Structures are given as C-alpha cells and as structure tokens.
Amino acid sequence: MLRRAVLAGLTAGSLMLSTACGGDGEPAQQQRQADGRLRIVAGFYPLQYMSERVGAEDAAVTNLTQGGAEPHDLELKPSQLAQVSDAALVVYLNGFQPSVDEAVRLQAKDKAFDVAAVERLAAGGEHGGDPHVWLDPVRFAVIVGKLGERIAALDPANADAIKVRAGQLQDELHRLDEEYTAGLRTCARREIVTSHAAFGYLAGRYHLTQVPISGLDPDEEPSPQRVSQVAALAKEKGATTIFFEALVSPKLSQTIAKEIGAKAAVLDPIEGVEDGDDYVSVMVRNLAALREALGCT
C-alpha cells in the first residue's frame, strides 16, 4: 500500500531523529519551536483540545486530522510524518487511527502518550472496544491529569503552571459530569438510538441504553434485519428521536425516524468540531439533545 511505502521510505531518517532524544528527559532542539514552546502532535480533536488546554502558551499543538475529516480514515502525508518525528510528544489513541499507530511505532515510541493505556478500553465487555472514552467526562478527566504530568515532566521550568491548567480542566470536566448526572436523572425513556455504536461510555456513565443501528465502524453497513430490529425496538420504546452524527451520513437514521414517526437529530461523538465550537460546548449541546429526546424533567 502507498501509505506503507511512504512510511518505509522515511523510517531510517525519522528513526535517526527520534532516537536522538529521550522520551521524558529534556526534549531535543528540533522538538521545540523557535520560541521555546514544546512541539506536541495530537491524533484527532479531543486529544488536541486537552493538549492545548494543558499546554497553553507553553506548547505548540498540531492536529493530524483536518477539521471536518473522519479521523478513522486518516492517511498521513510525508509532512505529517515529519511532524510526528519532530514532536516532543505525540498524543494518540492506539487502535483508533491505524496510520498514526504505525507512525508512532516507527518514529515516536519513546515520546508517545497513549490515551488507551491511561484509561484502558474494554476489549469485549460492556462497551465492546468502543474507543470514544472522551465522551465520559470522568474518564476524560483522568486522562487530562496524566497528560498534565507527562507535559510537566518534559517542561520542568513551566511544570507548576502546566499542572494548574490540567487541574482547571479536570474541574470543568467534573462540573460537566454533574450537569449530565442531574440533567439525565429523571427521564421518560433511557434508550438512545444512534447511527453507530459510539456512545457506550456516555451511556454507561449516565445509566442509558445505547441502541446502535451499526457497530463501532461508522462505515459499516448494517443488515436489513438489523435496521428492522432497531426500528421495531425504537417504536416499542416510544423513541421520539433517532440520532445521527455530524461526520456520518444521516440517511439510515432518517429512514428509521420516518418509519416510526420520529425525528432525526445530531448526537455528536466529538471526533471533530466546527469553527466556534469546542469540546465543552458540544457536550452541553449533546446534553440538551438527549434531554429533549428522552423526555427528561
């Protein structure tokens, strides 16, 4: 494959760069901007968000996934491979973006922060390997704390400020959790019908039941039998809303909604955001959409 060929062609030079520096020691010169800020590379939006909040003026954060793009399908360009090689820290989620996983393995093993190693993803339990751990604010807060420790270790001169910012973001996430807990405590329904199985952690945290039309892969085509099953269950439970995602086609959700007399609406897995939005604002919007769909008081 082209991606593998590109990676192979750059491996030798990239490895020479990456082995010239330590993982948790003082970063090499190329791992800092000219103004002294740490170079941090994030695989996709939620990881960019927490890196920017924690690193702030002490870090220059690059998101490998362009706005509006589906992060699962990312194919790295040579320029992005160079960014991985030159980074002081690569923040990624192992198993979510294969091209990033491979770049980390070849070029950034000793300077990678793997979200999946901080908050281990269920391999086959209640969430079925769902990688969308950031949709649970409590789990996300744990990850933020660990990221703060890692960035602080790379930048001792600014360690205190970095840890303070990590704590501030954790406080915001815990307040968000409190809003969700209160907002979803008393609802007429507790089933959320979604276009794909991205909301397992959110559902588990707030005692909801996710009913996905398709599995964890947003490109997976559900069988006609599955679509019929979901439509029947949604009608039986009195669902008023069938959710779809901002980066995925709404057609299936709209079809089921029309069939049972419901409406289709967005429930965002926050894999990317539009200009003017951020993680917290989209989570607040998701809460409002859930409260309306579930008849919460």
Rank of each mutant, 00 (worst) to 15 (best):
M1D: 09
M1I: 04
L2G: 01
R3T: 10
R3H: 13
A5S: 05
L10M: 15
L10V: 01
A12M: 12
S14V: 15
S14G: 15
L17K: 13
L17S: 14
S18I: 04
G23Q: 04
G25M: 01
G25L: 01
E26R: 13
Q33P: 04
A34E: 15
R37S: 11
R37A: 09
I40P: 04
A42N: 07
G43R: 01
Y45A: 02
P46A: 02
Q48R: 06
R53W: 05
G55N: 05
E57D: 15
Q66D: 14
G68Q: 11
A69V: 14
E70T: 10
P71Y: 08
D73E: 14
L76I: 04
L81N: 02
A82S: 09
D86V: 02
L93W: 01
N94P: 00
G95V: 10
G95M: 01
P98D: 14
S99H: 12
V100I: 15
V100Q: 07
E102D: 13
A103Y: 01
A116V: 05
A123N: 09
A123F: 00
E126R: 09
D130S: 02
D130T: 05
H132I: 11
V133T: 07
W134M: 01
D136L: 04
P137Q: 06
P137N: 05
R139I: 01
V144G: 13
G145A: 06
R150I: 05
I151P: 09
A152C: 13
D155E: 09
A157S: 13
N158A: 12
A161N: 10
G167H: 14
G167P: 08
G167T: 13
L169Y: 14
L173K: 09
R175Q: 15
Y180E: 06
A182H: 05
L184C: 03
T194P: 06
T194A: 08
S195Y: 01
F199P: 01
F199T: 11
G200M: 09
G204V: 07
Y206G: 03
T209S: 04
S214R: 07
S214G: 06
S214Y: 06
L216D: 05
D219E: 15
E220M: 08
E221F: 02
P224K: 00
Q225H: 10
V227W: 01
L233E: 15
L233C: 00
K237A: 12
G238P: 12
F243I: 08
E245K: 03
A246H: 03
L247K: 06
V248M: 05
S249M: 10
S249T: 03
A257Q: 07
E259N: 14
I260E: 11
I270G: 03
G272L: 05
V284N: 14
L287V: 03
A288G: 11
A289W: 02
A289E: 14
A293I: 10
L294E: 01
L294W: 13
T297Y: 00
